[in-house]
Amino acid sequence: MRPVVIASCLLLLAPITDSWWASGSAVILDPRMVCKKNRRGRGRLAQICRNETGLLKEISRGVTLGATECAHQFRHRRWNCTTQRRSMRKILMRDTRETGFVNAITAAGVAFAITRACTAGSLLECSCEKGIPKSRRGRQPILPPSPVPTDRWQWGGCSDNVRFGLKKSREFMDSRYRKRSDIKTLIKLHNHNAGRLAIKNNMKVECKCHGVSGSCTLRTCWWRMPTFREVGDILRDRFEGAAKVIASNDGDNFLPESTSIKPPGKKDIIYSEESPDFCNPNIKTGSLGTQGRQCNITSAGTDSCDQLCCRRGYAQATVKETENCKCEFKWCCEVLCKTCYVKREIQTCK
Results as ranks from 00 to 15, higher is better:
108 A>M: 03
213 S>H: 08
190 H>A: 07
234 I>W: 01
114 I>L: 05
161 N>D: 15
116 R>H: 02
164 F>I: 11
175 S>Q: 02
155 W>D: 10
187 I>V: 13
157 G>F: 05
162 V>D: 09
220 T>Q: 03
116 R>F: 04
128 C>V: 04
118 C>T: 10
169 S>Q: 06
225 M>P: 10
152 R>Q: 15
185 T>S: 04
155 W>K: 02
140 Q>C: 07
173 M>Q: 04
159 S>D: 05
137 R>V: 05
162 V>I: 15
181 S>W: 08
207 C>G: 04
222 W>E: 06
147 P>E: 02
151 D>I: 07
114 I>V: 15
196 R>A: 09
185 T>C: 07
208 K>L: 09
139 R>A: 04
215 S>L: 06
192 H>C: 11
178 R>A: 14
208 K>A: 07
125 E>R: 07
194 A>N: 08
206 E>W: 05
128 C>H: 07
201 N>W: 00
129 E>P: 00
241 G>F: 10
120 A>R: 15
216 C>Y: 11
213 S>I: 05
139 R>Y: 02
170 R>S: 12
207 C>I: 03
123 L>Y: 06
155 W>N: 02
166 L>R: 03
163 R>F: 08
172 F>N: 00
176 R>E: 08
150 T>Y: 05
175 S>G: 01
167 K>F: 12
144 P>W: 10
232 G>Q: 08
112 F>Y: 15
